[in-house]
C-alpha cells in the first residue's frame, strides 16, 4: 500500500512539474490566447449586426466561439459590442459605412 501511495505521489509531482514547465514555456502564448475568444466574439458580433445587418439571433450563431463568453453587451446606440471571456474583456466598435467595425 505504501509503495502504491508513493507511486501515485510521484506521478502527481511529475505531472505538476511538467505542467509548470509547459506553462512557463507557453506563457506568452497563453496570455495571448486569453484575449482571443472575447476579441473574436466582439468583432464577429459587431460586423454581423452593424455591417452585414443580420438579426441578433443570427449574429449570435455566427459569432459563437469555442470558449464560454459572458457579459456580452450590445450597445445599439453607439454600435459597440463588449464581451468577456477567460477573464479578459474586448470591445469592437462600428466606425462607419466604409470601414465597418474595428476591434479596440
Amino acid at each position: 500500500m505504501k509503495i502504491f501511495k508513493k507511486i501515485i505521489l510521484a506521478i502527481v509531482i511529475i505531472a505538476v512539474v511538467v505542467g509548470v514547465v509547459w506553462i512557463g514555456i507557453h506563457w506568452e502564448e497563453l496570455v495571448n490566447f486569453r484575449k482571443m475568444p472575447s476579441g473574436a466574439y466582439a468583432k464577429f458580433m459587431c460586423s454581423a449586426l452593424f455591417v452585414d445587418e443580420v438579426s441578433e439571433e443570427q449574429a449570435r450563431v455566427i459569432a459563437r466561439v469555442s470558449a464560454p463568453v459572458k457579459e456580452i453587451n450590445i450597445d445599439y446606440e453607439n454600435k459597440t459590442i463588449t464581451a468577456r471571456s477567460l477573464f479578459y474583456t474586448s470591445t469592437a466598435q462600428y466606425v462607419n459605412d466604409k470601414y465597418g467595425c474595428t476591434l479596440k
Binding site: 502564448e29 497563453l30 495571448n32 484575449k35 482571443m36 476579441g39 468583432k43 474586448s90 476591434l103
Partner: peptide, 19 residues
C-alpha cells in the same frame, strides 16, 4: 484557426497580440 489556437499567427493578428 481553431485547430491550433495557441500557435495561430492569424488568430493572434486578428484578435490578440497583433490586432
Amino acid at each position: 484557426y481553431e485547430s491550433s489556437p495557441l500557435q495561430s499567427t492569424v488568430n493572434n493578428m486578428l484578435f490578440s497580440a497583433g490586432h
